[in-house]
């Protein structure tokens, strides 16, 4: 139970970082923290104590293995996270080129 709770704390740290920080790069870091906390939570759901990796190999039988499905899903989620982070980083760099600052309070051409 504690580990799940810690995941939630990590998630909240990421959310806090996105909401409170004014630097674009810090916001991106916040997004990364949030994504990884969700991934970690997903992995922990499939974990059981004493379980081992669900990899089938020729010379041994596996009796007590962890749930492989969340691991496959988290791999996909990580790839998606990579794509999003790369795209946002590229946009942030372009924003810096245009505005000359990473401070979100100074990037205000749009209103309303």
């Amino acid at each position: 139970m504690t580990v799940y709770f810690l995941c939630l704390v990590l998630f909240c740290i990421g959310l806090y970082c996105i909401v409170r920080k004014r630097n674009l790069i810090k916001i991106i870091i916040g997004i990364a923290i949030m994504e990884y906390s969700v991934n970690l939570f997903f992995i922990l759901i499939g974990y059981k104590i004493g379980g081992r990796a669900p990899i089938h190999s020729s010379d041994q039988t596996i009796l007590n293995m962890v749930d492989p499905l969340p691991q496959a899903l988290v791999l996909t989620a990580i790839v998606i996270g990579l794509a999003v982070t790369a795209l946002i980083a590229a946009i942030a760099i372009r924003v810096y080129e245009k505005y000359g600052t990473f401070d979100i309070t100074k990037i205000r051409k749009l209103k309303g």
Binding site: A86, A89, A90, I93, R94, Y96, E97
Partner: peptide, 8 residues
């Protein structure tokens, strides 16, 4: 990402 940095 690197090309951006270089132009900067």
């Amino acid at each position: 990402l690197m090309l951006f940095k270089i132009t900067k």
